[in-house]
């Protein structure tokens, strides 16, 4: 997991001065593209969010941010996003860890199982949405159809169009699609753990649970951290699957932040307000990504 260090011994070949110029020249296109497509838009988001348009004229104001606090849609969307992220993250983590531990042992046909388990994660999110629209359709979907063939009454199980079950449905679909991600990262982490600590634990007569608790978990911590942080960032920005499955409905019961920003900007053309919400979302995900980058940095150092 470590990389050969880049620092230390200076790298001197004839013409080091022109080398440096070459380095800047090579990295310049990357920087230029990212400034145009990431940094400039970010600055634009901030300036947009600080302007209020009324009657064709726009002026500087904090009005967009003030509006956030009294906007029920925004607060509800924030709540939905947090509930969605917390539930999905918890379920995906424990299921993924369980599967990873299960598959870490000798298992015939392991690579085949592993490949099969990865299928949901690789699907385009839109296709995953289509798959579950079909599965969860109350009338002819496979889920209700199967339940009915077992003699259960499914009249109340309208899944994505039920105010009560819609959130559960979209969380379930996320868990279906992204548990493989946790599984994959954690399995890689498990396989990177050397044998010696286990042998030592075995000599000490540790029970299986003690070994897992005191040997496996601490050594798996870096992989766990990576998996949790990456998933958290993705969950906080969730858009595609929810857009396909419920469009934020029924009513607004499953509208997440990203969906509300989309609705504000591209249905109501209220770009200033959408920018203010984007800014809030950016701050929240930035906190998570700052952690992630710190983890990476620690790994490289």
């Amino acid at each position: 997991m470590s990389e050969p260090s880049n620092s230390g011994v200076g790298y001197r070949v004839p013409g080091a001065g022109s080398d440096r110029r070459l380095a800047y020249l090579l990295v310049a296109p990357t920087v230029a593209v990212l400034v145009a497509l990431s940094i400039y838009p970010l600055i634009h988001v901030v300036t947009l969010s600080l302007q209020v348009t009324s009657g064709g004229a726009s002026r500087w104001s904090l009005g967009n941010f003030a509006r956030l606090f009294s906007d029920h849609f925004f607060l509800a969307a924030l709540g939905h996003t947090l509930v969605y992220a917390a539930c999905a993250l918890t379920l995906e983590f424990f299921l993924g860890l369980g599967l990873a531990v299960l598959m870490n042992n000798q298992l015939r046909g392991r690579s085949l199982f592993r490949a099969a388990l990865l299928v949901p994660m690789m699907l385009p999110t839109v296709v995953a949405g289509v798959v579950w629209r079909l599965m969860l359709n109350p009338n002819f979907g496979a889920v209700n159809g199967t339940l009915r063939s077992w003699g259960l009454n499914t009249a109340a199980l309208t899944w994505t169009s039920s105010p009560r079950l819609a959130m559960l449905s979209i969380v379930a679909v996320d868990v279906w699609q992204w548990t493989p991600f946790m599984f994959l990262i954690l399995l890689a982490g498990l396989q990177a753990i050397p044998q010696e600590p286990y042998e030592a634990a075995c000599m000490d007569g540790s029970s299986a649970w003690q070994t897992f608790r005191h040997v496996t978990l601490p050594l798996l911590k870096p992989a766990i951290l990576v998996a949790l942080l990456l998933r958290t960032m993705d969950l906080l920005r969730v858009f595609d699957q929810v857009f396909i499955l419920t469009e934020g409905g029924p009513g607004f019961a499953t509208e997440t932040i990203s969906l509300y920003i989309y609705r504000t900007a591209f249905r109501f053309s209220d770009f200033g307000y959408a920018a203010a919400m984007s800014f809030v979302l950016l701050i929240v995900t930035n906190i998570v990504s700052a952690f992630y980058i710190r983890v990476l940095q620690a790994r490289e150092a």
Binding site: S7, V31, V45, M233, F239, A274, L296
Partner: peptide, 30 residues
Amino acid sequence: RFQMPRRLDRKLSLWILSTRMFPPIVTAVP
């Protein structure tokens, strides 16, 4: 492959990575 002054190479790498972390919806409007 190049060392830039003041560890600029490291800083640039991390900055480039951080641009990848923005939620897409944030830059969708601009």
